[in-house]
Design a protein around this nucleic acid. Structure first.
Lengths: 208, 208, 208, 208
DNA sequence: GATGAATGAGACTTCATTCAT
DNA sequence: CATGAATGAAGTCTCATTCAT
């Protein structure tokens, strides 16, 4: 009894790991359930025992990744004591996570959009959630008069979009070598965009 | 012979129009060649007479759209006499074009990614091209001392990314009603991000 | 144009013929669409071009058979000038048709019931139709005072059921050698059941 | 050990009851072993401990039902002192049994045929057995000169067929409300079919 | 040139059966 | 004895592509 739970979970994890690997390499449609099964040392039926269909595997993967990412972001933000520092930390957390997990980045940035209309709603939510985190911190910053009032919704989306593009480009081209390096150039732009002088630390830089 | 060229072209256009309509509505994989044929009052065989395969239809669509977009951008930029004005005009041209052709936006922002890895390379190029336009203007602006020196490659990508996200969100949610309205909020952010005071016209900074 | 219609129809017929052969031999569920395709010198896709799914093939077969049978019954009945003669002729027509087409009999008597709940409704209709024909003639006979009044609905079903069982048994066992022979024994029973003296021809025996 | 026998039997019964319920509702092929297992508060493995395979469950059900039915028929017949009365009692017993167990009727009349060719042999036997019972009584009746000599095999089948059709129709349509009511109309037909006046009790005919 | 019937590889999914725990 | 995870064969159906007419 106690041994079967871990067993079952382990198999599920193996399937998801295999799915991540293959989905991110070949895309949603060019990946067959058979491929996933073989990649997780299971049979097709085994996969279908744990997941009702192919779509649910992809969604599970998306959810798993999103929640892990949100966890990391949360942790990174918790170590900061001001809104700008927190927004800053969030960006860096995303960059670092994807920077060390390119397959994850590929899944999120490319394949999740391409997986077809049924995934669009979900991805729209996810994107909104991330943009919302930044928006929320910018709202706080404005309220505390750290920055001037502005349309924080657009700002949140713009920040997220800028980050997104940098990551996507890295996924495509592999440039820059270390994704995190892009932060050095991107950070001042974002700070200035909301009227902050990036040379004077309004917030301590997050220590790596 | 001379009469058939236009005929043939007209047929091609009908096919591409039909393809755009259906691809953007249902995505690449959920669109069958039969659907496209029926939508263009032709037969499957007719489609295959004009295009060697399904993939090439999608690529032709992408190319046609990209070049039209670049044309508009070029025209809009030509009317400006300074780099920042040109970059500005480019952004607005993109927003306006997609704002009046949501299907096109959807195709570019979402479905082009979903069409599979073989399209990723092409999309990477397209994205780079757009980001490159902005980068180029920012380079000019820096050279003319309108803005302080900065990493214009990242800046170009960041601007493009911000724009991209705003458009994508509009495709997903339909917000804001008029896509162009987003520009009012986005523009100051982008300007400030490169150190420009968005309230004053963009002329060379007074040298200290 | 004129040649394609026959072509298409011919292929459809080949598919139905193949389907009849295999369905009646192996039953609905043990017959795969691939089997039918091979049996009609076509490909699986070819079958699916003409029929939307497996079920529709079976239904088409049922309909084709039912209407042919009804045609023969109609013709046989038309040659008679009194209700009992017509009922008589109907029974014989059924017996003769199935007697020379055992596969058809098998399909109707066994497989159509076994093909699953979705076919039950249809078969219920078909059975009702046949029983109804007899009922209708018995009604006429009663009205013309050829027979005494009785519950013709039950009588119709009883006649049909008796016939049905004789045929089904023949399908199972091959007894009697010539199915039509069973009519010699069955006929007096049915006639007497509605109060007719079978030895005095109330109606001319249908001539073969 | 001695306690497990009843246990084991109880489990078997639960499985068969569950199987009857689901088979009769959804048909043989649309019922999965998992369904049966869940319906009998067991696991799939539990079912396979008691039955070697799905087919055997169905056969066991058929056998159980057939023998119960034959028991009832036997009991009903034993209370009669003449062949016609016995045949009469047999018919009524069948009608009553199925009339109060529609699931059983459905299983026997419809699903048993749909279970595939392998069940046809068995069903052929069962049908023959029932028809044989009637035939046997008719033989006796003829021997005792209660009825005139006739082809009792066909007569047996005809009676069985008529009964069968009435039941099947009831299974399909639910008409008549009380299956037993059909007997009032059917009985005279069957009696007259073998030359009996259904209004007078069945005693040996006066010899001329 | 156009048509649409035909092909056939391959996708997803189901489920009877087995077997380690 | 019971459980339920795992297997894998088989089935239905789709669709890009070809080609005879």
């Amino acid at each position: 009894m106690t041994t079967q739970q871990p067993r079952s979970h382990e198999r599920q994890h193996r399937i998801l790991d295999s799915a991540l690997r293959i989905f991110s390499r070949r895309g949603y449609h060019d990946t067959s359930v058979d491929d996933i099964a073989q990649g997780s040392r299971t049979s097709k039926g085994g996969v279908y025992f744990h997941f009702p269909n192919k779509e649910s595997i992809f969604l599970a993967l998306l959810d798993r990744t999103a929640s892990r990412l949100l966890d990391r972001i949360g942790t990174a933000m918790a170590a900061q004591d001001n809104p700008i520092g927190r927004a800053d930390a969030a960006l860096l957390a995303v960059l670092r996570t994807f920077g060390t997990h390119r397959a994850l980045a590929r899944l999120f940035m490319l394949e999740a959009l391409g997986a077809g209309p049924e995934f669009h709603r979900r991805m729209s939510e996810v994107r909104g959630e991330f943009a919302g985190i930044i928006q929320s911190e910018l709202d706080d910053a404005a309220q505390q008069s750290i920055i001037r009032p502005l349309d924080t919704e657009i700002a949140g989306r713009a920040w997220f979009g800028a980050l997104n593009e940098v990551i996507t480009n890295w996924v495509f081209t592999g440039q820059p070598e270390r994704l995190e390096d892009a932060f050095q150039a991107l950070r001042p732009l974002l700070m200035q965009s909301v009227g902050l002088d990036h040379r004077r630390p309004h917030s301590p830089m997050p220590q790596p």
